[in-house]
Design a protein around this nucleic acid. Structure first.
Lengths: 222, 222, 222, 222
DNA sequence: TGCTAAGCGAGACGGTACGTCCCGTCTTAAT
DNA sequence: ATTAAGACGGGACGTACCGTCTCGCTTAGCA
């Protein structure tokens, strides 16, 4: 939520206020170092050097390197949008592409170790989930729920599983970094899945093709 | 392939042979430390101490900590089997369960950083792929190819994408460690996917149910 | 001058103060290891182990093993006294015995390598000279100057050469470690030298013998 | 005596003969490395590299690095001469100059550590004494004995002490490396000492001055 | 308005683990 | 039998970086 910090306890009596320029400089430096040297060789001393500040100033703001990295990533991520055009296939395709775009902003060798560090730190894990994991996932979940409400998905299907199968594909590519998942592949993946779980896949497909002729409809979001 | 080392060039004049007990002791110690303290706090000095040897002896065998970890994991993994019962659904279900079992032998906070480190080291990536990634994936790929040859999968479907969608689900669970993927979930995932890509899914399902009455058939592998 | 360190420039902003217990513990451990295993097998790791600290803490205080050894020796050496009884021969004899005593506190196999290392490090050499070499030498030089001022030494004699001839004898024994130079030998060496350079050696000798009856006079120092 | 090795046990049965070129190449390489990098940073691997051979080949010939260094030094030292002109002062002056020349061929930072290592290795010490220490010292001792036999030195004087006082001066300069001891300084040192121990120093001096007019006499040696 | 104390930038600290150099020894193949 | 050659097991090195502590200055709110 907040741009910088985990601290919440209200200071009783004033004291010197925190310099907000340092927050910004540190986040920027962190992102720059991440881009250049990756997560493994990330050094707080280097970050402090670039941000022209000191390690304690950083530790005062974020409880660990992991939290700092997470904050630096979050500060750069574009907010996930939730397309809502009424066309299930269109929404899913675009939604997943946005999902993918989110994670393509992060170097693949950053996500892995960060994720691993979450296993040892419950707090960090919570922040990670709330910051990086849930938002794009929630967007897709919303779209699936809408599709189910519309009756486009069979009643006996567990939407959570579908969600995971789509989400996992994204993470898979982000983590293994094989190659950027193309829009065409996303389309085929959605097709394959929906072919198995839709109540009437041919109808969805036809609807989607009709929509393609009216691209202005794609601007609708929620 | 080999249990210990990267060396392959034929030495001209021999020299003192490597003590194989050290190879074994180091791999064992590495695995033990991984289990106890995880990847992040893995220390070569601790491994050397446990294996009752020294750091140079380790560096002589593996070019980096990552290679060592990979070797230690590989030494413990059970070989992937490729079920071949003629029943597409049965094979896929069992194949994916074996796939999952493979990665459940590895702590989730080990796979992530290891994977991330692969991004920066092409050689390591090659070893990782050849050791951990490809074998179980190849098993599933084989099963999909057989199904396609049998005509169970539509001709216009890219088996590679199906493979990735199944594989990604496994990795997703292994990496994020949400929860162990149950056999029932695997079954539903296969059902959802095959429902979209099979030429005649109901027939496959019926076949599979008939097979369930003859469990001895499941022993057939390739 | 200072017991521990080379730092002199006034720090702008302080920082955490150095733990003086570590200084003491390291010096003590260094001296102990020197006594037990000699200079050649002196190990910073062993010193750190004994002092219950770490190598970086040592390197922060002394720029090299040599400086550390020098500091450890200096911390144990008794200050050189400068006898001043008015009796040239008595003073010289006692002065040189003190000189010798200084270097007998140091293992012969420590001085040699330390000295040798000075050749490659100007700073170290300066510290060595100021710490071990000059003080006892200055004491003898003072005595020779007094003798010359009294007219006990011929005007055409270079006191520096006499000083070196006496000093060299001491170092010679200290370095080669033949045998401890006895007081009788010192006396004969002084006799031989002064016989050649004194204006009136027999008078000096007679004076010295008269003094021998009044040992309380020997307490006079400067 | 022998150019290469300490080994004495005669090989019972033939076997492959030792390559004498390696002996020479190693000694030469050792001397070169000594000159360039000093004793402290002397590395057997570097020597082996330069001599285009291997470490075991070196260890087969010399039992330790110290022995090797000693052999390398000995191979380069010029033999000490013993002047015998009948002129005590002349002989001493020249003898000591030769003494000095011997040690000026050795870097000051080589002698010290080598000497120190002798303390821990009796065999090495013996070789050191027999190779470097005794020969020039014996030359001066011979000259002093001749002088005593001639009656030039007082009967109550311990020639050993005089010898040590002259020798120590040389070592002192060689080890501390203040400055090269000049011939003039040697002359004054001899003058100071002999002034105290000669039976009739003025006569010796006069004799020496007369000899100076007949330089050809200086060619006489024993 | 002045005092006081919390919070700040800054820098050095004690300490862990690193990756490497070099040691002295052992094994193999050739002579 | 003994060599030349090369790799080995291992000890210690000097360094990078960690996370923490102490300092002196700054600033807000209470008196």
């Amino acid at each position: 939520m907040e741009s910088s910090s985990q601290r919440s306890a209200a200071p009783k009596h004033g004291g010197r206020p925190r310099d907000p320029q340092i927050d910004a400089a540190v986040l920027e430096a962190t992102f720059a170092v991440l881009e250049e040297t990756g997560y493994a060789h990330l050094t707080l001393e280097e970050i402090a050097r670039r941000a022209e500040t000191t390690k304690p100033a950083i530790y005062r703001r974020w409880p660990s390197r992991q939290h700092l990295v997470l904050a630096a990533l979050a500060a750069r991520l574009t907010a996930a949008r939730t397309p809502n055009t009424g066309c299930t296939l269109c929404d899913l395709n675009e939604g997943i592409n946005v999902f993918i775009a989110t994670f393509q902003q992060i170097r693949p060798d950053v996500l892995g170790p960060l994720l691993a560090d979450c296993a040892a730190d419950t707090t960090l894990r919570g922040v990670f989930m709330a910051t990086l994991f849930d938002p794009p996932r929630a967007a897709v979940a919303t779209m699936l729920d809408r599709a189910a409400a519309r009756g486009d998905i069979r009643f006996d299907i567990d939407c959570g599983l579908i969600l995971d199968m789509l989400g996992s594909l994204v993470h898979y590519r982000a983590l293994f970094g094989h190659a950027p998942t193309t829009e065409a592949e996303v389309e085929r993946a959605v097709e394959a899945l929906m072919g198995g779980v839709a109540t009437d896949y041919p109808a969805l497909l036809e609807h989607s093709l009709r929509m393609a002729g009216h691209p202005e409809a794609h601007a609708a979001h929620t």
